[in-house]
């Protein structure tokens, strides 16, 4: 099985002005994503999922320092120059985010936004780009795509907007799609449809998907393999079946136990021990802020 994305000992640190250096946001992460699979990264908030995804996409802000190695199709991304990155980003990888509204220009017909993305990467005529954009809108399940080509984003529902964003992300046939909480803002019934769409795309095109989520349910619905993150570290990696049948790490076990959807109705839910609690991770920082506010 060929490897499309390979991370070796990846670390990300955000340099903050003054005061104590915070712990690294991503710490010593190594993993390999195989071509054609949907690989999930699951963890609670602040565990470093988005930072890791942004490191893969080279979308981190200037105050972030990345260490280790990130290879896409055997090409090193860390330290790659802007020119090379720009061409890679369009041709090999695409990213979608939680909030589809933020990825779309509110004043512009959605079809033109997709066509523009196509023309930025392929030497096609405006007419060809439009035809391809309509085909993509149809493919992601926008009914009557040709007629809706000229509609602006707010004429679409949240779920439809995320479909449009996916269509734009597919404009260049990316080999790797990085999706950061793509269904978190959607109602569950719509979430299920968008996940089915992502699954269908990888079946039809062999697109590899790196799917970031806080939701174990989403993982169980769509991922082939999954990595669990806590405090910037990758605690374990397993096939979805193995993870659910036999979680190896105490944190993963505690997280499963805390999920009410799996527990007997009305039973007290086992509480995550303090050493694995996201709240206790944050406590030092909050205490520092509280003392700072009291003194100054």
């Amino acid at each position: 099985m060929s490897v499309i994305l390979s991370l070796d000992n990846v670390g990300v640190r955000f340099n903050t002005a003054g005061a104590a250096q915070p712990a690294p946001a991503v710490d010593g992460v190594s993993l390999q994503v195989h071509r054609g699979e949907i690989f999930g990264i699951v963890g609670e908030s602040g565990s470093g999922k988005s930072t890791l995804a942004n490191a893969v996409m080279d979308l981190l802000p200037a105050n972030a320092a990345v260490s280790g190695s990130i290879r896409i199709n055997d090409r090193e991304v860390v330290g790659l120059d802007d020119e090379a990155l720009r061409s890679m980003r369009g041709d090999e990888v695409s990213m979608i985010f939680q909030d589809p509204t933020a990825s779309l220009d509110p004043t512009w017909p959605v079809g033109d936004q997709i066509a523009e993305t196509i023309r930025a990467h392929y030497p096609v005529t405006a007419r060809q780009a439009k035809a391809r954009a309509i085909a993509l809108m149809g493919e992601v399940g926008i009914a009557d795509a040709a007629a809706r080509y000229g509609d602006v984003p707010h004429r679409f529902s949240g779920g439809q907007r995320q479909r449009i964003v996916i269509a734009a992300a597919l404009a260049n046939n990316p080999q790797l799609l990085v999706a950061d909480e793509p269904t978190t803002a959607l109602d569950v019934t719509i979430q299920a449809q968008v996940l089915q769409l992502i699954d269908k795309l990888r079946r039809d095109h062999g697109t590899t998907v790196l799917l970031i989520t806080h939701d174990l349910g989403v993982v169980s619905m769509i991922c082939d393999r999954v990595g669990v993150m806590y405090g910037g570290k990758l605690l374990e990696t397993a096939t979805t079946e193995a993870l659910f049948a036999n979680p190896a790490h105490p944190y993963t076990r505690a997280l499963f136990a805390a999920n009410p959807a799996g527990a007997p109705r009305g039973a007290r839910l086992p509480v995550i021990p303090a050493e694995w609690s996201v709240e206790s991770l944050r406590e030092a920082e909050l205490l520092r802020a509280a003392i700072g506010a009291a003194n100054g």
Binding site: G36, V219, A261
Partner: peptide, 23 residues
């Protein structure tokens, strides 16, 4: 029923799709 079907339910026997075809 739609709501029930869409609820993501982690279970030890997660419902599995057929394996993905290798390109």
């Amino acid at each position: 029923r739609t709501l029930l079907a869409a609820i993501p339910r982690p279970r030890s026997s997660a419902p599995r799709r057929p394996p993905c075809p290798q390109p």
